[in-house]
C-alpha cells in the first residue's frame, strides 16, 4: 500500500460536490470564463449586446468560455435571483471576482479591461 493520505471521512462530501470541485479546479487551470448576459426581449440594445459579447469571446476567449443569454421577460424570477436591475447586464461569474457590465457593451475597451483581457494602460 502506498502511503497515500486519505480523507479523514470520505463519506461526508457528496458526489456532486466533488464533481463541482473538480470542474472548478479544471476551469481555474484553464482560466475558463463563465459569462451570463441578461437581456429584455429582442430589441436593438439586446441585439447589440449579444453581438458584441459574442465577438469579444470569439476573439479573446476561444474555446475557454461559456456564455448564457437569458431573456428576463421569459424568466423574471431569474432577474430577481440574479439581482438584475439595469439591462442589458453582462455578468462575469468566473473567474472571480464577480463583475457586472451594464449597458449595450458599446465601450469594448471597458469590457476587455473588466474581463482582465487587457492590461492597464
Amino acid at each position: 500500500m502506498s502511503p497515500v493520505r486519505r480523507p479523514a471521512s470520505p463519506g461526508t462530501r457528496s458526489r456532486k460536490w466533488r464533481a463541482t470541485a473538480r470542474r472548478d479546479v479544471r476551469r481555474a487551470g484553464a482560466l475558463q470564463y463563465v459569462l451570463k448576459l441578461y437581456v429584455t426581449g429582442l430589441n436593438r440594445a439586446s441585439g447589440l449586446a449579444i453581438e458584441r459579447v459574442r465577438g469579444v469571446c470569439e476573439t479573446h476567449l476561444q474555446g475557454r468560455y461559456e456564455l448564457e443569454v437569458v431573456d428576463i421577460y421569459q424568466k423574471p424570477a431569474l432577474a430577481r435571483d440574479e439581482q438584475i436591475l439595469a439591462t442589458p447586464t453582462l455578468i462575469k461569474v468566473l473567474p472571480a471576482p464577480l463583475r457586472r457590465f451594464i449597458g449595450n457593451l458599446a465601450n469594448v475597451e471597458k469590457v476587455l479591461f473588466g474581463l482582465d483581457l487587457r492590461e492597464k494602460r
Binding site: 439591462t87 457586472r100 451594464i102 471597458k110
Partner: peptide
Amino acid sequence: IDYVRVERSEIEETGEYDLEGLFVRLQYA
C-alpha cells in the same frame, strides 16, 4: 419582498442602459 442589491464596486457601465430589469422584477412581484 424583493431586495434590490446595488453594489457600485462591481458595476461597470459599458454603454446605454435602461432599468427594464427593475420593471421586470416589479411586474413579477
